[in-house]
Write a protein that binds this DNA or RNA. Structure first.
Lengths: 196, 196
DNA sequence: AAAGGAAATTAACAAAAGTTAATTTCATCC
DNA sequence: GGATGAAATTAACTTTTGTTAATTTCCTTT
């Protein structure tokens, strides 16, 4: 039984048997480090649970630099909100930062199953609420915290993830340049020295 | 028939009769300008559709300044995500910037109705996806755009709303100070003069 | 019309971030 | 183990923002 199955059963309280129609539609996908899962311009509406690895969503800014929108890792779902919510081609590329193991499903097929088995609908609610909560938490950071505080918070809450990801992607996610992040790191380090 | 009823029926394709149990639980709420709808610390799980007016979600930063997380206006739903998603007391205050007319429902009662009438579940999906989309769009702005570009985008997309809201709240939403927003406005104005 | 008060602008200076480029670190490959 | 190349740091300089305070604008009230 997979991590995902265990998770879903805990959340839904539904017996494994009733999940058969759901899991019949899933397939395992392996990505090599650096491999793209969804490319900018793709129209496929696939959705994946991350069993292992980190995926980075990014796009090119007008000035040519990459901008990282978010990272997702073990236990998260990843999908292009452009294709699923708005039915437009993906405006971001979703690429594996590490070798990844995913469990994939087509969103439209998932939708069919949920329509036929409304007792599973609260799974969808659960994950939508979780994603909404994450997004709002991100927004909060930008409104409430300075760049330095935002990085500090990331270190406190996700030290393990920050450690697995090159700083330049972290910087971009924080809305700053790598040079600026480096200065922030130095500042934090010096504070630690002087003030304990 | 209210704006909300019309909207829901368009979205759900469900006949008015089936919505009776839903609307039996709603009540209209009027707020004066400056009146709070939900206060920081509140535990109530109410949810409201905004028929008329603008509501601002804000909290006090550690330094004592107010930080505005978002604005919601006609056609949006407003609720404390802290109480509804996480079941913790609201960390933000939701206050009417203008006199408001709301249609309110208790989230737990709504939840009951949706469980009993699963044919309405896709309404919840629709609104959750819409809120998620809004939140992600906000995040995108912080990652992809400079302060000036973010303000420009707001002017282009929501000129009518920006016009109804004091600049200091707009500035806070953009993650900058009122002084800085004022300078940005001047810069934009001057560009318009010189470069047409 | 005058007064009062909040919001917005401006000014002046300090702090932080952007930009470009040089330098150093560090992991990887041969 | 030395070469290679990307990432991170540092440096030097410019631009933007933060901060505090003064000034102006604008709206409301009397």
């Amino acid at each position: 039984m997979t991590v995902l199955q265990t998770l879903l059963e805990e959340l839904s309280g539904v017996l494994p048997g009733n999940m058969t129609s759901l899991f019949a539609l899933t397939r395992q996908v392996k990505l090599e480090e650096g491999e793209a899962y969804i490319r900018e311009g793709d129209k496929s509406r696939r959705l994946a649970f991350i069993e292992k690895g980190i995926i980075r969503a990014y796009t090119l800014k007008q000035n040519g630099d990459e901008a990282t929108l978010f990272l997702r890792w073990e236990g998260h779902f990843v999908a292009s909100h452009d294709t699923i919510i708005h039915s437009i081609p993906a405006r971001f590329t979703y690429r594996a930062l590490e070798a990844c193991s995913l469990i994939e499903i087509d969103y439209d097929e998932l939708d069919d199953v949920l329509r036929r088995q409304p007792e599973l609908e609260h799974l969808r609610n659960y994950f939508l609420l979780k994603m909404l909560s994450d997004a709002l938490e991100g927004l909060e950071g930008f409104v409430l915290l300075s760049h330095e505080e935002r990085y500090q918070r990331l270190l406190e809450n996700r030290w393990d993830i920050v450690n697995r990801v090159p700083d330049k992607y972290i910087a971009s996610m924080l809305g700053i340049t790598p040079v600026s992040l480096s200065r922030i790191r130095k500042r934090i380090h010096n504070k630690g020295r002087n003030q304990g």
